[in-house]
Amino acid sequence: MNTAVVRLIAGRIVIAILTLLFVSLAVFVGTEILPGDVAQAVLGQNATPEAVAGLRHALHLDQPAYIRYFLWLGSLLSGDPGRSLVNGLPVATLIASRLPNSLMLAFVTAVICVPIALMLGILSAVWRGSRFDRAVSFVTMSIISVPEFMIATLLVIVFAVNLRWFPALSYAAGKVSLDQFFRLFALPVLTLTCVMIAQMMRMTRAAVIDTLRSSYVEMAVLKGASPIRVVLTHALPNAIGPIANIVALNLSFLLGGAIIVEVIFNYPGLARLLVDAVSTRDMPLVQACVMIFCATYLFLVMLADISGILSNPRLRHR
C-alpha cells in the first residue's frame, strides 16, 4: 500500500458517492417532477379537494421540489423511506421482507455461475477457434440473444411440465423441508444461471484473449512454458482487473435483472416488489427499490475498480 494507491481508491469511493447522489436526483426527478398528481392518483377521481389537499400536505407535495428532494434524501439516509401509498405499510418493512429472498437467490446463483463461467471463458480463450470454442460461442450467443422470459418458459416446459421434476411456481408459504427448498429454488436459479454463465463467459473469453495476444505471452511460449503455465502465471494475473469488472457487472445484474425470473416464478424477491409497485404507481416504494439496486450496482463496480487498482503492478510497486 502506498499513498498513490490510497489516493486512487479514495477517489473511486468519492466518485461512487457522487454518482449515487446524481442517481438519487435522477430517480427523484423521474418519479416526482413528471406530470400527474400523486395525491389525486392515490385517492382516485372521486376524492374531495380537501382530502387531496390534506394528503398533498402530508406528502410535502405543497413544498418546492428541491426541499422535497432533501427531505426525501434525508429520510432515505435515516433508513425510513416513508410509507407505501397503496397499503400504508412502511416501505422499510416491505423491503425487509423481500430483500433476504433476493439475496438468497443471488447468492446461490453466483456460487454456481462464477466458477463455471470463468472456467468456460478461460478454456474458450485458450482453445480459441477450436470446435469447443465455436460450439460454446454459438450456444452462449443464442442464450444472450433470447429474452430471459423465453429461457424461463423453456425450462418450465421441459422440467416442470414434461419431466415434472420441479414445481413451476417457486414459492410456497410457510416452512419447507430442505428437499422442497432445493426443488423450489431449482428453476429460478437454473434460468438465471443460463443467462449469467452465457454473459460472463463471453466477457471473460474476450478479456483473456486480450492478454493472450500480448508479447509477454509469446515470450513465455518461446521460453518453453506449457499452455497451462502460460495461462495461469502470465495471462490470468494480468486479466484480474477486467475479470473483477465482469463479475461485478454480472452480480449487480443478478439483483436487479432478476425481475423477469421473479415474476415468472412468482418469487417474492425485491425485483417483483418493484414491478408491483410500478404497476400500482406506488412511488415511495419504487424510489426505495431503485435506489437499493443502483447503490448495489455502484458498490460492486467500485469494488471491481478497487481490485483492479490493487492488482495493477504499476500502482502496487512504484
Partner: peptide
C-alpha cells in the same frame, strides 16, 4: 516446448512489452 528456452533462446525487440508486468 522442451527445446525452447533451454536449447534455443530468444531476445525480442520490445523489452517493455515482453516482460509480464505482474
Amino acid at each position: 516446448a522442451s527445446l525452447r528456452g533451454r536449447d534455443v533462446a530468444y531476445v525480442p525487440q520490445s523489452a517493455a512489452a515482453s516482460f509480464n508486468p505482474a
